[in-house]
Amino acid sequence: MEIWTVLLIGVLFGVSFYFLLSRNLVRVLLGLLLFGQGVNLLIFTSAGLTTGHAPILDGSGNTPQPVADPLPQALILTAIVIGLGMIGFSLALFRKAREQAGAVDLDQLKED
């Protein structure tokens, strides 16, 4: 089953790079968003996929088996939130860029 996720990872990375290589600022931003999601998925996959239970104890001290690895989940959660912050800020920056340059053409923002 992993191969399917791997396929998705490959596609996400590829498409995000394609977006990032654009001249259009909006597409670059979208590329960043997609890139972040690809990375998250990669961590999730690389740590091992299970179809098991969520890592939530039932309170009686027994752990339901099989259980998903909680640590990567915590990491990804952090990463998602950080990504949200980054993209959110980039959007603000993008907006300022559009106000300043009046366009989303990166070549107009070229200075050096």
């Binding site: 990032l20 890139f35 980054m86 800020f89 920056l93 860029a97 340059a101 923002l109």
Partner: peptide, 19 residues
């Protein structure tokens, strides 16, 4: 404009690095 342009590059390239 220069700052935004520089900032945009900074953000994008460093975001890639983080990823």
């Amino acid at each position: 404009k220069a700052q935004i342009g520089g900032g945009m590059k900074y953000v994008t390239l460093n975001f890639i690095s983080s990823g």
